[in-house]
């Protein structure tokens, strides 16, 4: 069956405009702006200093915030993409149109991804403009990298959310599963790895530890951002843990892209029939 662009664009356009009209995009953008500005100006308050310190510390603080927030936002955005239509009863009507199942799924995914990317760029971009006068080129490029990887982090969890929306039999299960996925990747995963390391006295998993981190998009995101910042990199102790052959930016972005694409492909495969 051929893939046509027009039906994908129609579905994507509807999803995107739905989020604009419901003020979802605006709310998320404002949330990002407020958090980023607060962190930039008050992030150092514990050290007794208020005011913008450095872009590197700002990014490092933003990373810790975004790691919790963006996966949750993306999962909530996408978990009912398909199961919502199914439960509402509008899925059959949609599928009776001249559109394939793959086109419908892609349209949903791309429209939601556009809404998420738009809020991220608008929210964090506004902050970049406010800070622009105080940044040198290196700082700007680090911040641009932070924004790009934030979008990828969001899209990777959106991809997982769309997979959940295809697998789940109803919306309640889909939302439960989404929260479980968030809990696992954001809170449990690192703890489990550390636990395995500590319990085995470092014998189990020591060498594969960095590779295991690639199995979690939030960890890839953290490594991408923190590793780029020499000043804070040492603070995290990552330089000693993370082998240089893995710290390659292109590779890490490749892994993030894979996380954006693979769950979606699995979803498309499951949604075929």
């Amino acid at each position: 069956m051929t893939l046509e662009f027009a039906p994908v664009a129609t579905v994507a356009g509807k999803e995107f405009w739905d989020r604009i009209r419901s003020l979802w995009v605006l709310a998320i953008a404002v949330l990002f702006t407020v958090f980023a500005l607060a962190i930039a100006y008050f992030g150092g308050a514990q050290q007794g200093a208020v005011g913008f310190r450095s872009i590197e510390f700002t990014i490092a603080s933003l990373v810790s915030l975004v790691i919790y927030l963006i996966p949750l936002i993306a999962l909530l955005l996408g978990f009912d993409a398909i199961v919502g239509e199914r439960e509402r009863g509008s899925l059959d009507l949609l599928l009776s149109m001249p559109i394939t199942r793959l086109e419908l799924l892609l349209g949903k995914f791309l429209g939601l991804a556009a809404a998420l990317a738009f809020s991220t760029v608008a929210g964090f971009g506004l902050v970049a403009m406010v800070l622009a006068g105080r940044l040198n080129l290196g700082g700007l490029s680090a911040y641009a990298g932070f924004m790009a990887s934030s979008i990828l982090l969001g899209v990777s969890f959106l991809s997982i959310a769309v997979l959940i929306s295809v697998l789940a039999s109803d919306r309640t299960r889909a939302s439960g599963l989404s929260i479980a996925v968030w809990f696992f990747f954001v809170l449990m995963f690192d703890l489990l790895l550390l636990g395995a390391l500590v319990v085995s006295g470092g014998r189990v998993g020591g060498a594969v530890f960095p590779y295991l981190l690639l199995l979690n998009p939030t960890d890839v995101f953290r490594v991408l951002n923190v590793h780029a910042l020499e000043e804070v990199g040492s603070l995290y102790g990552l330089a000693t843990v993370f082998p240089p052959e893995l710290a390659h930016q292109g590779l890490l972005y490749g892994v993030m892209l894979a996380w954006c694409v693979l769950p979606l492909m699995l979803a498309a495969w499951r949604f075929r029939r």
Binding site: P7, S22, G89, S90, D92, L93, I99
Partner: peptide
């Protein structure tokens, strides 16, 4: 043309917007 049993649409759209969306899908 297909009218499903208990047809359900999108509550946030108007009647015209609903029809425009399906018109676009059907070219």
């Amino acid at each position: 043309g297909y009218l499903p049993e208990n047809v359900v649409f999108y509550d946030n759209l108007t009647g015209l917007e609903t029809l425009l969306f399906f018109a676009k899908l059907k070219a």
